[in-house]
Design a binder for these strands. Structure first.
Lengths: 245, 245
DNA sequence: CGCTGGGTTGATCGCACTCAACCCGCGTGG
DNA sequence: CCACGCGGGTTGAGTGCGATCAACCCAGCG
């Protein structure tokens, strides 16, 4: 392979997974550890989308014509009830695939939390590439499986945990997520507001704020400046109560 | 293909998806509409498991050595917290795949609600067959994707819906599920107890019982004999409040 | 300067939880 | 035969956690 080709590949890779400077060789996103041939094929069908904070990548009810991967920044994925109540299903970070769960219409909205970029793929075209690369199909199933495991944890939290347990568990999960992304994990900077956290945890923003205050008071976390949080994992683990009996 | 071979295949098929007599050609489970060659391969690596009510197919924390498909009966899939609180993640019926979300250990318990049968596959062996049949890999991803969509709906219910909305939505979803399985859907017979419903909906059994009484009082459902329920879909839909704003 | 979004804290309310009593049907055994 | 236990279900009384309503602070910004 010549130098120009290799350079083009690296551009494509960096479009699909933003070089964050902290990432090592961990598996992130669709491209990691895939053959150049695959990268090239993907590059011919993808389009880069740039998002400002608060703008929607996809909207609930729209025709589900595309799949995406988030390549930088963060986003929230949420559903809305007829009367306006909203539930954030999950937060998305670099490397996350967007499109699971969609049949003909998107059953959720995805909205950027910060400035973010995404790769957009025509559904049929990506399916075509997947057929040509069964390894990718396998990995995508793995990602779906992981998302299911995450969803299970979250259902447990929403159905059975107290407000304090939910917040403690959330902070630890988020920290672990940041660590895997190669970003600062403790202290870490929250990319979302109290309201977002509340809508994710099935609480109100007031309750979340109160729990943060309580956790600070008992020394399980400390906050600031800005949205920085420092975790005392020991105490948070004791509060959370995760795990089998 | 000769008659004996064909007969053997039909036996295998019936092992993997119990012939319920009501099913038409809908896609259920792994085998539906797959080539005979695939059925034969699967049959060499599967083992049939028979379950009595209340017995566990897999237990949280065990080594995740197998995948399963439920081929008859029904089951509940649940997680347990350290102090014993339980959350039912979902109910399983004929054709459902069991194993998504598992990495090295099973993160949940699966327990039969009624007499049930399942097909058990060594994980590695099933993965091998999947590599040989990319079409299956594709379908499995589809099943995972559907499970994610279901999980999203359930998170919305757990996080944002009132007790009455949760029960109304649950009954309608269950009825729709029964219909797709070719079983009586209205009236239908609940395969689970009030306590199971409560653990699924993030409520207590008393609350579920009260809501059933309320729904009866306002004519949205009628019950009996036994666990039979008749739904007034009109009224239940009005109560549920599903859908986008 | 005032406005807006994000955050904290206080006072009160109400939905669902908790504790408790009771019913029914069923299987088991004295 | 009835007694008994047990799982499943219903209903009542009282409680509490988190929601609601409201006031206020701060920082950023046009």
């Amino acid at each position: 392979m010549n130098g120009a080709h290799s350079a083009a590949l690296s551009v494509v890779r960096s479009l699909m997974i933003d070089p964050c400077g902290h990432c090592d060789a961990r598996e992130i996103g669709l491209c990691a550890a895939m053959p150049d041939e695959f990268i090239v094929q993907l590059s011919t069908i993808m389009r880069v989308i740039r998002l400002d904070p608060g703008t929607a990548l996809i909207s609930e009810g729209d025709d589900a014509r595309h799949y995406f991967t988030l390549t930088s920044g963060s986003a929230k994925l949420y559903k809305t009830l007829a009367d306006g109540r909203q539930q954030i299903i999950g937060f998305l970070f670099t490397g996350d695939f967007v499109g699971f769960g969609a049949r003909d219409l998107y059953p959720y909205t995805v909205e950027a939390l910060s400035k973010a970029t995404a790769c957009r793929f025509q559904r049929g075209q990506l399916e075509g590439v997947l057929h040509a690369f069964p390894e990718l199909e396998f990995r995508l199933r793995g990602m779906a499986s992981d998302e299911i495991a995450q969803a299970h944890d979250h259902m447990m939290a929403l159905g059975r945990k107290t407000a304090k347990e939910r917040v403690a568990g959330f902070l630890m999960h988020l920290s672990e997520r940041m660590r895997r992304l190669g970003q600062p994990s403790n202290p870490m900077t929250l990319p979302m507001t109290r309201s977002d956290i509340a809508q994710f945890l099935g609480l109100t923003l007031e309750t979340v704020s109160r729990v943060f205050s309580d956790l600070k008071a008992e020394g399980a976390i400390s906050t600031g400046p800005g949205r920085a949080v420092t975790l005392d994992l020991q105490r948070l683990t004791a509060i959370d109560g995760e795990g089998i009996g």
